[in-house]
Amino acid sequence: MIPKIDTELCTGCKSCIEVCPPLAIVVENEKAFIDPEFCEECGFCVAECIVNAIAIEFPSSTKK
């Protein structure tokens, strides 16, 4: 699952970029964006984000 970034919460600190193995994240206008073409869905950015702006929507059986 490609993580989703909450641009309200994102402060543009770039700490996610540091841990992204394929360098799939860019910060523009102080907000981070994930390039789906390169995202390998590792989740490292989710664990790294200090303001919890990045999340993985894990599918549930009722809401896919």
Partner: peptide, 8 residues
């Protein structure tokens, strides 16, 4: 390693 980052 992916398991611990909540990825399949």
């Amino acid at each position: 390693s992916r398991l611990y980052y909540h990825q399949p």
